[in-house]
């Protein structure tokens, strides 16, 4: 089962909005347990890339492999390998996602938010799911909020619930799309702490972020994206202290001088 080299692999992933090319031939190989932070100026295609990994954006061409199995294949001339829907759904569930704006279901309580997908998608036993959900809530430090509605929580609390909700599906890869960008500064710390704990537990993570401190501390690898390509990649030390690409240099200069 676990005889794959890379848990996530993208080959030649491109995406066009009409004539505008947002992603240009992106290749990435991610090992199990790796934490990858994606940084870059806005409009670089960071979020688009992350969202195209779990089909929220349709890619124009390229291949995506998950755990060594082909998950998505699209070519401009439509000569593609057909992928079984069931396999695709199974592979999709290997990825959990957290959004900038949390996107909790406002008509359901915190606990219901977390339990919904395991019950409805995986058809797991309700009581077991509830127990596991409570444990996840404890892990993110919100056990006492289980029966609150999301709008009663602060942004940071909502994001932590969103993380718990994604984790309830027991994914092997977590995708974070600017998880702290919509938060008040004093609430960012709690969310980052939860993410750090998650990284320490060995979760494979792809994080689009503007939190350079987090990237420096937690990331195994940092990707700098600009104009739809990965302009530079390397260890945090390499990217933040010895960037080679002039674009990386100017980007870091602009954000560190704020």
């Amino acid at each position: 089962m676990d005889n794959f080299e890379y848990i996530l692999e993208t080959e030649h992933v491109s995406k066009n909005f009409g004539s505008l090319s947002v992603l240009k031939d992106i290749n990435l190989k991610v090992k199990k347990g790796e934490v990858i932070c994606i940084i870059g100026p806005s409009g670089a295609g960071k979020s688009t890339y992350l969202r195209s990994l779990n089909q929220l954006e349709k890619i124009s061409s390229g291949k995506i492999f998950i755990k060594g199995d082909l998950f998505l294949h699209r070519e401009k001339d439509h000569t593609v390998e057909r992928i079984d829907k069931k396999t695709q759904q199974k592979l999709l569930l290997e990825m959990g996602m957290c959004f900038q704006r949390f996107n909790l279901f406002p008509h359901k309580t915190v606990l219901e938010n977390i339990c919904l997908a395991p019950i409805e998608v995986k058809h797991e036993d309700k009581e077991t799911v509830k127990k596991e959900a409570m444990e996840l809530l404890k892990k993110v430090g919100l056990a006492e909020k289980a029966n609150e509605f999301p709008n009663r929580l602060s942004g940071g609390q909502q994001q932590r619930v969103a993380i718990a909700r994604a984790l309830a599906m027991k994914p092997e890869i977590m995708l974070f799309d600017e998880p702290t960008s919509a938060l008040d500064p004093e609430l960012v710390g709690d969310v980052l702490q939860v993410m750090k704990d998650l990284a320490n537990d060995g979760m494979t993570m792809l994080v689009v972020t503007h939190e350079m401190g987090f990237a420096k501390e937690v990331a195994d690898r940092v990707l700098f994206m600009a104009d739809g390509i990965i302009a530079e990649e390397g260890t945090p030390d390499h990217i933040f202290n010895h960037p080679e690409n002039p674009r990386t240099q100017s980007f870091l200069r602009s954000i560190l001088n704020v």
Binding site: L56, M97, N103, L104, A162, R165
Partner: peptide, 10 residues
């Protein structure tokens, strides 16, 4: 809301 549901596999 659609995106969150889709990401959860609904």
């Amino acid at each position: 809301q659609h995106e969150a549901a889709k990401a959860l596999g609904l």
